[in-house]
Design a protein around this nucleic acid. Structure first.
Lengths: 332, 332
DNA sequence: CCATCGTGTTGGAGCGCTCCAATACGTGAA
DNA sequence: TTCACGTATTGGAGCGCTCCAACACGATGG
């Protein structure tokens, strides 16, 4: 690692002032061509790279946005990030990502670090845990939240209406003649609660309250497999399983197959998210599709608005999801 | 957004000097309990958060590492990141992630930004494109590379021996009696070239050079589906398909099913990476397992060593992968 | 020929912090 | 009581940059 040249070095070499070098690197237009060329040449020769840390400190802004993602392994979040990133780069912002590792404290810590790093805004993707620390954060730095139902003037949010999603699932299964429909939930995961609620509401509204059966889980493949075991150990399998998301669904599916229970002939299975890989194999997974990329870019848009001018109220948008019917579900 | 209090403000409120506040926040031990308490109280009351930007600038280090990931959607990279992150946090470093979006220029740009942001080190995960700009980067900031075969003293690297992996695949298929084995490659993706080479070498060594058939692809689900169409349009299907990675394999699989070609009875299919979801369904995908998390943590370890003390030579490690036999392959 | 203007350029202060040398202040030894 | 010493605290310089007021200077107009 050679010692890093600074603007001062470049200025000296080019025979101009530090200020002039600064102007050149900011792309100012009132710099004579000769000097500009001299500066650029000197910078090139020295291998000079601007120190953005110093620049950000001096300017008081960083043109970067921090995103904290609840789980990097969740393909849904991956697509959301695409949307966020696309919108941000279009507007000259840089996106920096940190992993929340499905842990509320890690999430808050990562977000705080972003704050201390003076990012211009923060996007929380599927953040879990108590809202208070997150509100506290939102008071300090413009924040947008994705995939969680909240109502606050401190930040904006975009999510899918999970009650509608759950309703679509239950209606679909009910129409196919299934009665005992178990739900494996996402535990503490963002929107896990709403999906669970939506499931219960929907079950009631089709007269299946007696069959309400929530198996506690997590938004992971492993939790899905574990839940399948739990179901099996109870003796009688339900007619159908509504998994909290696709990751859970694939875990359930794999485990059921291992136990010689087949999908869909023995049990119908529905996921949630429409991850890219779940159409695979003889049997595609019936699931709920969320416009993930759009959700991401919309959240980014709200965030940039908020950075421009802090509004006195929060904007909270909920988008209706749709059911994608494949072959992991069939009539009873 | 309330105006941000600075150390000066805290110092003033606590009736001490700015330096003392600094000492408290650095956890210095030679500060009297009374003053420390006063400082902490003042900070609390003002809602003070240290500005890490300023701190990093003054200290000349940031205790953060930047990772540029070729493709956030690739589950293999996700697990690699886990490994990297685990090792780094253990050693007090923070991990910041940026997306390379499967594009060499985006990758270099992201890495440069990290450099300008004065990160202490950079991890390139599956970086593609010409090495020159990456070497240039490695000259400025300690760098480690994952999943790409290189030989340079400027940086360290950890990867899987792709030739061994390809060899395992071909041997497996050959032993099952398959002869025409097509390979769908990962295009410009890191290690795509080595897998392709490995495929060709292995095919030759089992006497199948006449059947060498590389279908150009990309490390994505979509490219896999497209390649399946390409194969189908040629009239005769190969006996088996060796997909460049699991993403491609799932794409191929899905598309084959759509075209009524079944796996494995009509075509045996092998993937690469052992992504968590591919065991799903009646038929699990036979694939190559890489110890991804270990690869990540090992790379992080090499990087931290390099940060401690710049070595005059690069360390390049290659780990042998293993074959996981599931049911997407069967005898001819 | 001098005042006026505009384009280019510059020095200095400042962003919020760290770090070091210098200082203040007890405390125990002489 | 005095001196030396160690501990706690402080002011100032500096990290690499931006921004602004000030300035130099050739071109313009009366």
């Amino acid at each position: 690692m050679q010692a890093k040249p600074t603007m001062e070095d470049v200025a000296h070499r080019a025979g101009v002032s530090r200020s002039l070098v600064s102007l050149v690197f900011q792309g100012a237009d009132n710099v004579s061509d000769a000097r500009r060329a001299a500066v650029l040449a000197a910078a090139e020769e020295l291998g000079y790279r601007p120190n953005r840390l110093a620049r950000n400190l001096a300017q008081g802004k960083s043109m970067t946005i921090g995103a904290v993602v609840d789980d990097l392994h969740n393909p849904f979040f991956g697509t959301v990030i695409d949307g966020v990133e696309q919108h941000l780069t279009q507007h000259g912002y840089q996106l920096m990502i940190a992993n929340g590792a499905r842990d509320a404290e890690v999430t808050v810590a990562a977000a705080s670090t972003f704050n201390e790093l003076q990012v211009d805004g923060i996007v929380l993707i599927g953040a879990r845990g108590p809202m208070e620390p997150l509100y506290d954060l939102a008071r300090r730095v413009p924040t947008a939240m994705i995939a969680r139902q909240i109502k606050s003037d401190l930040l904006d949010s975009v999510r899918v209406d999970e009650h509608v999603g759950s309703r679509l699932v239950i209606d679909h299964l009910h129409r196919l003649g299934h009665r005992s429909i178990a739900h494996i939930d996402g535990g503490e995961g963002a929107s896990a609660g709403e999906r669970r609620e939506g499931y219960e509401i929907a079950m009631r509204s089709v007269g299946l309250e007696a069959h309400i059966d929530v198996v506690p889980g997590e938004f992971t493949h492993e939790a899905g497999a574990k839940a399948a075991v739990t179901l099996a150990e109870r003796g009688s399998m339900p007619d159908a399983v509504f998994a909290g998301n696709d990751l859970i669904a694939t875990g359930v599916w794999l485990q059921l197959e291992r136990m010689d229970v087949s999908v869909p002939s023995d049990v119908s299975l529905v996921g949630y998210d429409d991850a890219p890989f779940i159409g695979i194999g003889q049997v595609g997974l019936t699931t709920i599709r969320q416009p993930s990329s759009e959700i991401g870019s919309r959240a980014a848009e709200l965030l940039l608005d908020r950075i421009d001018e802090t509004p006195d109220s929060g904007r909270h948008e909920a988008i209706a999801p749709t059911l994608v019917e494949r072959s992991s579900t069939e009539s009873a």
